[in-house]
Computed example of a mutant assay.
Amino acid sequence: MAQNTRTQALSDAGVSIWLDDLSRQRMDSGNLRELIDTRNVVGVTTNPSIFQSAISGRSEYDADIARLAGEGKDVDAIVEVLTTDDVRRAADLFADLHTATHGFDGRVSIEVDPRLAHSTEETIAQAKHLHEVVGRENLFVKIPATEAGLPAITATIAEGISVNVTLIFSVDRYRAVIDAYLAGLEQAAAAGKDLSSIHSVASFFVSRVDSEIDSRLEELASEEATALRGQAGVANAQVAFGVYLEAFAAERFAALKEKGANVQRALWASTGVKNPEYSDTLYVDSLVADPTVNTMPEKTLAAVAEHSQPQAALTAEKATSAEAVLERISEAGVDLADVFAVLEREGVEKFEKSWNELLATVSESVESARA
């Protein structure tokens, strides 16, 4: 099957397209295989909300839940089996791509339990556990960029485990994430590990930034504030890419690169446009850069394949212009530090809520199976 010309153009421009979704139904139906063959999809990301949606109310999981319950497994153990089985199966589907791209793509991500977001040691332990349970080299373990998550990122990278850092909202936190990654590589190198086998992406969230800042701009109700709506998410990400360019051109990374280290690519997450007034491909067309990852929900991917019009690639000059946009938003009266703190807190809470809902759903199924 031929690839779509618009998604192929993005791929040619250095953008790796990953699907922000996974379910057993998607794999059973051949849909994921089709997206790989026709939409340049070279990876998959998951999160607690995706698993909750995939498993809740789906009959495909009933037999496994009944079997696992019959084996005496508790709800947490059952959920782990269901989610890691799906991730392992998807990882196998992408295995050839992983080999062909020398580990950069063909990746599938699974997130540590969101209830551990503020516990460093427990996050490290579960990252190791998930890596072992899934048992696939093309796995990314997702660790949130909370204060407690930063040292967990370093420790996990130092172990030689590839990490997808999630829930990054601010440029300052992004700088700390890069530092955590480089520190992990330095520790891995000191321990004699093969740096070329360690990969990482930094998931910088986009649409949620616009949603929160647009709301605050509307409350300000000034002409200047209103004119700035819809600009924050893209500008914030563009500034972040400028930080990426600077960090991975610096001497600290150059020393690691000589030992085989890979860059930590920026990944644009939360790219589904939430405001119908904006183009549904806004967070794809505006954030083309080599190398980056754009992880898209299927609705956004379909829109991209139909009418995407990518802009020129991001540069350091664009990052400087984007900084001016954020400055104007701040001058208009938006407390950006508070925005990013709220978004991080809400991000963790939303994932924890979804995880608890998933546990409750599976618990009901277990009770039904045992009745």
Rank of each mutant, 00 (worst) to 15 (best):
W18E: 03
D20P: 06
L22D: 07
R24M: 09
L35W: 04
T45N: 02
T46G: 00
I50C: 02
I55T: 08
S56M: 05
A63W: 09
E71H: 10
D76C: 01
D86A: 13
R89H: 13
A100W: 00
S109D: 02
D113Y: 01
D113C: 11
P114M: 11
P114T: 01
T120M: 09
E121G: 12
I124R: 03
H129S: 11
R136I: 14
K142L: 01
A145F: 08
G149L: 14
A152M: 07
E159L: 06
S162D: 00
A176G: 07
Y181D: 10
G184L: 10
A190K: 14
A190S: 10
I198M: 06
E212L: 08
D214I: 01
S215R: 15
Y244M: 05
F253A: 02
K259V: 00
V263C: 03
V263P: 08
L267H: 04
V273M: 04
E277I: 13
L287N: 12
P291K: 12
T292R: 06
N294P: 02
H307Q: 06
Q309F: 08
E323A: 09
S330T: 14
A341P: 10
R345S: 15
W355Q: 15
L358A: 03
T361I: 00
E364S: 13
R370G: 05
